[in-house]
């Protein structure tokens, strides 16, 4: 359904993506692992054109887009097929939880207000925030904010949801509630690309795990293949380090 070919991106003198290919089927949960600076976030942002890649193309559904040359109209088209969940939530500070969810429906998709409202209520209930509709982001905890962020993303019924380290800004206590919502989505067959450091989450729900380093995909396969039985030395090194961290975590 989504096929990325040979994507390149450089910031100044640093080449962040050095030709990455990625294939996502409907219902896939693709988890991208890798050390910081490996280009995983840039890859995700390039898919949504939040970053303009220098080279490469993408087939999305039955349409082909060039990363470099996509027109404004094409970019808007891609953005309407995708949704993004940010590391820092990025909820609209001037809008309530409910308005955060309806915004994309009413303004982005021209859905009548009343219908959008009903849908937003339904989705916020689903992520466990039925008592927080008219709270502003600054009145919500990090975990609640991120669940609103996810609600805002699923409301627009995207074909793919892109998660950029959705739990890495959260207190350890609050990570669980966000992951639970994501697991629920995975169970329902939502197509997701997730950049994360949550190995356990990857093992439980990923249909495909990708390990990236220095702008390239080093290893790709099922969770079992990549996490339990990695072939490449670089992957083993990385996994050893983050699982060690977990043991020492107090």
């Amino acid at each position: 359904m989504l096929e990325i070919k040979n994507i390149h991106k450089r910031f100044g003198n640093t080449e962040v993506l050095k030709g990455v290919d990625l294939n996502v089927e409907k219902g896939d949960v693709v988890v991208i692992l890798g050390p910081s600076g490996s280009g995983k976030t840039t890859l995700l942002r390039s898919i949504n054109f939040l970053e303009r890649a220098d080279q490469g193309s993408m087939v999305f559904g039955d349409k082909k887009y060039s990363f470099q040359k996509a027109s404004k109209k094409e970019i808007l088209e891609v953005r309407k097929k995708t949704a993004f969940v940010f590391q820092n939530y990025n909820l609209f500070q001037n809008k309530t939880a409910l308005e955060n969810v309806t915004e994309g429906l009413v303004i982005g998709r021209n859905i009548p207000k009343k219908k959008a409202y009903e849908k937003a209520v339904e989705i916020l209930t689903k992520v466990g925030l039925s008592d927080r509709y008219d709270f502003y982001p600054s009145q919500l905890s990090g975990g609640q904010q991120q669940r609103v962020g996810i609600a805002r993303a699923i409301a627009v019924e995207p074909e793919v949801i892109l998660f950029d380290e959705p739990t890495s800004a959260l207190d350890p206590e609050l990570i669980g509630e966000v992951l639970q919502v994501m697991k629920q989505l995975a169970k329902e067959g939502t197509t997701m690309i997730v950049v994360t450091h949550e190995i356990t989450f990857a093992q439980e729900v990923a249909s495909k795990v990708i390990f990236m380093d220095e702008g390239r995909i080093i290893e790709c396969g099922t969770a079992d293949q990549v996490i339990k039985h990695p072939k490449e030395e670089r992957t083993k090194q990385f996994l050893r380090r983050i699982t060690n961290d977990m043991e020492y975590a107090i």
Binding site: N90, E103, I107
Partner: peptide
């Protein structure tokens, strides 16, 4: 204003103009 506000607006399908005026 954090640039994430604009990005979030674009990511749910708002145009640049709509993101500016509404967010």
């Amino acid at each position: 204003i954090d640039k994430g506000q604009r990005e979030a607006a674009l990511s749910i399908g708002l145009s640049d103009m709509q993101a500016f005026i509404r967010i």
